[in-house]
């Protein structure tokens, strides 16, 4: 066996690149992110330019993805929409991960009464209709994109917290945690150095599932008039728009739907790949 002097991350990267599905997922995500960043230079039209005379037109050379009932170019609107959707998806997921992982790990590790109180709180929040929650947050803190990210992140962390807590409870029985306690390692260090890295697998897999969920929730909130305001758009909004014209103008749902699914699949592949890459036991020889 060859000696390797690599950090966990370098090693993980090498293993990630050996996984074809993960590389595909990573490539697609990178391309989508690049398109979103460079949208102002790439978009063939303005996102709010209407062509009422044209109306809803099927894909053509001038409008590769077709146009909507107001004659707006779908490709342009999707490019602009991707900026919102990806931003919402990633940032809200990050927020939910941050809160959920910390909350769940602390709750699971401390256990006892603390755990009881923390988890009952989660149960109560679960029982509240989330939209009610978002509305309150948005109304109270004002309608802005940043607040939207935070509001969505704040409702998504509940399941993450539960998953992490469950994993941490089974992990903390392990002797390496007891060894760390006996050695005098501090509690934050035990939680974040010993426990969380061992829960990375489920965290990442759940996070990749959170991204598309958040994107769709954003659409719903925007539909209620609390999120993105027309004429600006997002994939979710475009899709909910497209559903209304399903029979006559199917391209209005097909393109946003395809790209949302593509994102979802790519993230799933990437998530699975990351989970395996970050587990040293999968280290290939």
């Amino acid at each position: 066996m060859i000696e390797r002097g690599e950090s966990l991350w370098m090693d993980a990267r090498r293993r990630l690149f050996q996984n074809r599905a993960a590389v595909f997922g990573l490539a697609v995500v990178c391309v989508l992110v690049a398109l979103a960043i460079f949208t102002p230079y790439l978009a063939p039209y303005d996102y709010d330019r209407q062509d009422l005379a044209l109306g809803a037109a099927a894909p053509s050379a001038a409008h590769p993805f077709g146009t909507d009932s107001l004659g707006r170019d779908l490709l342009t609107r999707m490019l602009y929409g991707s900026r919102i959707s990806l931003l919402v998806g990633f940032l809200a997921t990050l927020v939910s991960m941050g809160i959920g992982v910390t909350y769940g790990a602390v709750s699971g590790y401390l256990g006892g009464r603390t755990d009881g109180i923390l988890m009952r709180t989660v149960d109560i929040l679960y029982a509240l209709p989330f939209i009610f929650f978002v509305i309150i947050l948005m109304v109270y803190f004002g309608r802005s994109l940043v607040n939207l990210f935070i509001a969505l992140g704040c409702i998504q962390w509940l399941t993450m917290a539960r998953i992490v807590r469950g994993q941490v409870i089974s992990l903390k029985q392990k002797e390496f945690v007891e060894a760390a306690v006996a050695m005098g390692v501090s509690t934050p260090s035990i939680v974040f150095r010993h426990l969380v890295p061992n829960v990375l697998g489920p965290i990442i897999v759940y996070a990749t599932l959170t991204v598309p969920t958040v994107m769709l929730e954003e659409a719903f909130i925007s539909f209620l008039g609390l999120g993105v305001q027309p004429p600006m758009s997002s994939w979710g909004l475009l899709m909910s728009d497209g559903v209304k014209h399903l029979e006559l103008e199917p391209w209005l749902i097909l393109f946003p739907g395809f790209f949302l699914s593509l994102t979802l699949f790519s993230l799933n592949f990437l998530g699975d790949g990351l989970r395996d890459a970050l587990d040293p036991r999968y280290r290939s020889d």
Binding site: L8, K174, E175, F176, E178, A179, A180, A182, M183, G184, V185, S186, R193, H194, P197, N198, L200, D279, P280, R281
Partner: peptide, 29 residues
């Protein structure tokens, strides 16, 4: 006071290298 456990499979953190495992007590103390 230090301890050695029975099961060497669960007493070592699978995500840490041998160096990390052995240097942790040094870092703490």
């Amino acid at each position: 006071i230090q301890i050695i456990f029975q099961d060497p499979y669960s007493s070592l953190n699978p995500r840490m290298t041998v160096y990390d495992i052995l240097s942790e007590p040094l870092r703490v103390h």
